[in-house]
Design a protein around this nucleic acid. Structure first.
Lengths: 252, 252
DNA sequence: GAGTGGTCTAGACCACAGA
DNA sequence: CTGTGGTCTAGACCACTCT
């Protein structure tokens, strides 16, 4: 796939020479197509052979790029059907972005959420810092109580950069799993998240909402979620009653 | 690598036909060699070519098996040097098994640990269940306080199946990072861990040891650690003062 | 320079999905 | 049946390490 500077094949090759391994350049090219909207979530990609012909590399190189993207949860591959840009299904939300399990060790998405408020206002200092905003920018703040089984267990505050979520206000119909909602209504695809966990004491309001006494220990999960191009687009703080639930993580 | 039942090449092929993909059979074979001690931690493996010749598959298939093992942190590969069975260095401990960061977001292993006690006794019910022991089996229980920066931050209780750790008692010189210690002195290699996190209230003893008041919220990390062959060999409960520290996790 | 893993290619066959 | 991704092979060349 070395590019001869004198012969232009067709639309011009889309990969610059001299960088890293070829398959990584191909991967970067493909990610670019996802970022700029050529390949939105759910799209079926051309076959490996077609892609290889188009960008003038071998099928094996395309395969190596796609295999890595599959591991990164960027695409999903099905033998016999094709390769698809990943979307936010309930399944993915459950296995990659929800880590609370019950006493039996069962992972289960919240049955329902009780929306407390949706507010549009100027970002405070912490929001500005966490969301990489410019001074004076606005945020949309969502507050809700999430239920697991029959009980309220999680008090959740979500801050979003208002510029990315036009029209999102208290009249919006916010579903339980918001990442699919972001993707479908605002073209915002969450790709990865970093979470920091602490133990904190419940405030009076939290205690009342979650049915325990003020000062009781709560598990606080502070999450920053990023898009494909590494922009932070959600800051979420979840405070969980962990008497009958726990946060689970695996490591190797 | 299909095995002709009538011609035996040399020592007899070591891979049964008819199972999954060939490269996974090769991977399983290699893992077997690590489990049974043929390839202890730190061993340099034969080259891809050599392995391919020995088990009568192509180099590409050996490569695919080793690449997967590299992703699983079972081996480490160095261009120009070779492929090595993974060992528990401080680096690995830090990046894969220690998830506490300070207020600045810096990940740092404890400066030192204050050993409280090492006890050898019959396992209680919880220990028997968590370590898959038979009734009446013994455990070694280690209690210590771990310091981060200048302050005591983590109160830690480690339960080990006594049968796997002969001679481990209060006279043992237990280092700060125990996984390298398990590996070198007892041939126990920790491969993966599952952690469950909760918020709990500090007991009086804990409060005194960590310099806070009884009932203060603590972050409890409950870890079960397993060997290559999926036996649980450590149950560890760490209770952390999370005022100035947090547990960090990344997800995609 | 010899030997290692890393990349790239080319071609074959298989397993699976869908018309 | 055709087309897809999944596996396996073979061979070439490159980048790196060590002697």
């Amino acid at each position: 796939m070395m590019i001869d500077p004198h012969t232009h094949s067709k639309p011009g090759p889309e990969i610059a020479p001299g960088n890293g391994p070829l398959y990584r350049q191909v991967k970067a090219l493909f990610i670019g197509r996802m970022v700029d909207g050529q390949w939105p979530p759910g799209t079926r990609l051309p076959s490996e052979m077609e892609l290889a012909r188009d960008i003038d590399v071998s099928q094996g190189t395309v395969r190596k790029a796609l295999d890595e993207m599959c591991q990164d949860n960027l695409v999903i591959r099905h033998q016999g059907r094709g390769t698809f840009v990943a979307t936010h299904t309930a399944q993915r939300e459950l296995y990659h972005f929800f880590h609370i399990i019950d006493a039996k060790g069962v992972r289960q998405l919240p049955a329902h959420s009780q929306l407390i408020s949706v507010t549009r206002r100027r970002a405070d200092k912490a929001e500005t810092r966490n969301l990489d905003l410019t001074a004076g920018a606005h945020v949309v703040v969502i507050e809700r109580i999430r239920h697991l089984g029959a009980r309220p267990v999680i008090s959740e505050t979500i801050a979003l950069p208002a510029a990315r979520f036009p029209g999102l206000d208290q009249n919006a119909d916010i579903p339980n799993e918001v990442y699919g909602f972001y993707e479908q209504h605002y073209g915002v695809t969450i790709h990865k998240a970093v979470e920091r966990l602490r133990a904190v004491a419940a405030t009076g309001d939290e205690a009342k909402a979650l049915g325990l006494h003020a000062g009781a220990p709560l598990l606080e999960i502070d999450r920053l979620a990023k898009t494909l191009d590494d922009e932070t687009v959600e800051w979420r703080v979840s405070r969980c009653d962990s008497r009958d639930h726990a946060y689970v993580a695996e490591h190797t």
